[in-house]
Design a protein around this nucleic acid. Sequence first.
DNA 1: TAGATTGTTAATCGATTAACAATC
DNA 2: TAGATTGTTAATCGATTAACAATC
Lengths: 215, 215
Amino acid sequence: MRWKKISDAVIRRLPLYLRVLDELSADPETELISSQDLGFRAGVSPALVRKDLAWFGEFGKQGVGYEVAFLRDELRRILNLDSELKVALVGVGSLGVALTRYNIKRYQEDNSFNLRLAALFDSDPKKIGIQIEGIPVFSIDQIGEKTEELGLQMAIITVPFESAQIITDMLVNAGVRAILNFAPTKLVVPEGVHVANADLSLELQRLAYYLQDEE
Amino acid sequence: MRWKKISDAVIRRLPLYLRVLDELSADPETELISSQDLGFRAGVSPALVRKDLAWFGEFGKQGVGYEVAFLRDELRRILNLDSELKVALVGVGSLGVALTRYNIKRYQEDNSFNLRLAALFDSDPKKIGIQIEGIPVFSIDQIGEKTEELGLQMAIITVPFESAQIITDMLVNAGVRAILNFAPTKLVVPEGVHVANADLSLELQRLAYYLQDEE
DNA sequence: TAGATTGTTAATCGATTAACAATC
DNA sequence: TAGATTGTTAATCGATTAACAATC
């Protein structure tokens, strides 16, 4: 099933709802949840919760609410998280290694976490051939080859900003269509490729503004 | 000088403009920049650039544009980045260490980067007392004491999600008013305290949506 | 002066909220 | 049935864009 032109603001909130539902699933007591309660836990208004969900279908029952397990499964499906997605990480520096550990831990502990880090890439010959948390490190020259071979669909970029665009081009050429970018630079990508920016210093700089004497 | 009720959407773009101006400052040829050019480089429309800046004053000259160095300094001042801010980091795991390295490198290389990581905190006795990149690791019990002593104003949280809220409460009690949170949980903070979320898995889950067959 | 670009107002667009009929 | 809550439409709110007078 496909829907068109759903706003990014809506998509951003779906993983928030999914997280709440995942937490509630742990408790077998809670089989139902209202938009009121779900909204409160996700930090979103009840009306907006209902409107967001309504873009994709009718998942609730009037007078009752939403079935937790059912809505969770529907959201997973909507977000394309119902089957395993293979992720690449480029740039095996300390940040890259930290994210690798984090991902692997998450993947092992939560068996519905379907984002699998399947390959690491680096340009340093000393790193190529080793494994980090069981994940092999390949040369960046192998991005094209390994992307196809392993079916890599997403990538995390943790290289210095000078090489971020070149790496991006290589990934895009290889067929990667979603990139999480930790390099402090704006990546240029063709139509149809999505980039999410995770820029630490931008966020810190923004926060500094609010330290000024409050009104 | 203080301004009131400026939208968060505006504040979010200021560090973007600042980054462009910082890059341009390196080139002594470019003394002036138009809203057109600045907008293009920052990925924002020219009209929006002018409107954003106009909230804080008149920084340009009609028919000419903006002076790069002047506007850069003004933006630094507006963002409260014209003097050093002391930052704490809580949770010296691999992510915490990676961010420490990243910050220190940035701080050393760019002498107008005024966000100084001044203290690390952890609960592991084996880590307390050591230094990472020259920054001492204290016990989380010392958060109150060290925040005052060192004048810590912002904090980065890289602890497991179970302890994120407790750590947040300790930081807020100690007087920290801006937090960059890497733990996958929604932090509850009182009015006047600002939280920026840097949630890797939320972003990856969002990106997964766009991998579905494009229209 | 002629050309260019700002600062600002009015118009548009999009996202959120309020309200309520439908219905479980 | 009575009470509760959804799905949806209309109203509101806020953010972005278009347009242009002011002016360098």
